[in-house]
Amino acid sequence: MRADKEKRKALGKVMHDFCAIAVCLVFLVPVLWAIFSAFQPPSYLFTFPPNFDPRKFSLSSFQAVFATGDVPRYALNSLIVATSSSLITVFASSMAGFALAKYRFLGRQFTFLLIISVLLVPLQVLMVPVFLVLKTLGWINNLIGIIIPPAATATGTFMMRQYIIGIPDELLEAARIDGASHWKIYRHVILPLSAPVIGAVGILSFTWRWNDYLWPLIVINNQQNFTLQLSLANLVGTNTVEWGTLLAYATLAMLPVLVVFLSFQRYFLKGSLSGSIKG
């Protein structure tokens, strides 16, 4: 009797697991469907019931993507922007995190609250004055205009500070007694010991910057400096490009982020909980 009950309970759990995966797949239909359609030959794109025969799948939409513009160039721009911006984020936020975690100085608490609260005010609200600041700096139409401004993030600073607080003071004291300068302590003690959180902040900001649309939209207006997101968004608006091509383009544009996310999902699932929104 008892074994029977146990068995039924185990079966219930397996059913629940099965449902969890099924519901998750249904939830993901919008994006799965876009990827699925990107592999359809144009002649099957609009048929219903759709073609599920893998032998008829084709890559022609992906080839068509490269005829829409200088796509490798846009991809390179996206890569340059995402890489350099997240490097700056890592350096700026690790230094700030170090100062806020390990020093006592006048205005520390104030600076911390200022950083967190001001950086939480979204660009959406500030875009007009920020645009004018960039114009004054001569950064309009220049990749630097999308690299530098979003590089200071509340999430990054917060995550760094929380992590560095946990590094024992004794290590810093020992280095200090050995005569290390503050910079050397940052460079040779703090940075190596913060490797995990540096990885997390770097990966998170890489995907944020790769995905950015608003910055490029207001800063960039000549094709040469388009990022992947900006050029895809422009094509979606025109109605002159085939849906298959757009979806193949979207698939290519999300691919790096999906790969990074799936390989480092631990960082995402933990990092995003440190109390902030996308930064």
Binding site: A34, W210, Q229, L232, A233, A250, A253, M254, V257, F268
Partner: peptide, 14 residues
């Protein structure tokens, strides 16, 4: 969690 890591452009296109 996947939709949250997608860009607004990709979400809107899909």
């Amino acid at each position: 969690y996947v939709p949250f890591v997608l860009s607004p452009v990709v979400v809107a296109t899909s």
